[in-house]
Amino acid sequence: MKKVWERFGVVLLAGGAAAVLLTLAAIILFLALRGAPALSWEFITAFPRRGMTEGGIFPALVGTLYLVVGTAIIAVPLGVGAAVYLSEYARGGTWVRIVRVGVNSLAGVPSIVFGLFGLAFFVKALGIGVSLLSGVLTLGLLVLPVVIRAAEEALRAVPQEFREGAYALGATRWQVTRSVVLPVAMPGIITGAILALGRAAGETAPIMFTAAAYYTPRLPRSPLDEVMALPYHLYVMATESTFFWKTRHLQYGTALVLLCLVLVFYLAAALIRARIRRRKRW
């Protein structure tokens, strides 16, 4: 009797987990099936036409890539630097605790609040205006804690013996970090950075007031230009455009492209991680 109940419990857990997997599969499959017919070479490489009721998503795709690259330039060096300080230089102490609390808090701030901050600070106070640069700075701050945490975790996973060996040979802290610790931690750091950028690629709220344009007739020529971005484009097409019910096929296509873009980031990170685990020999 007891056995039956226990079996039932395990089945219940498995059922819950399976339901989660099914949900994921359902969302992806549905978007893939509905979005695939819209995909074409033209869809990827053309500008929107006729008030965004025809044509492609080229400027939004390029804008998102610009945003991602810019975010990487801002957040990855800063985040890795911060993680190196936390894990290699500071090692404990009050300041580190404060910084860590700050990083955790930053990670929990809602993305719309980042948007508000970007508007008040970068766009207005610094006078950068609604631009690629403001968006990149806002997104950079948003993903900074993700990069810091992942990099710190990767640095902490480096065995202490490697550091001791290098110190005992007379290496300075920076030499130890640069020539032994960072190379060992690098795949983990890259994984974290990729995940952070995947997040940046899909965010809408932080760029709504800081960078994103409804429509631009040309690609941005400087960091001070407004940009179109895939997530914002999808939002606008689905809810605010004049004939949103007429462009559903384009919306499905846009959603699918955005989903694929983000999935590529996540799968790349997962593959690198699996590879690290397989090749690890210490």
Binding site: I27, A201, Y235
Partner: peptide, 24 residues
Amino acid sequence: DPFKVAVEILAGIPSVVYGFFGLV
């Protein structure tokens, strides 16, 4: 690990895509 990756992807789907899915 594969299962965890799947759950991670669930977290990685952009919120605007969830919104779109909910809308349509």
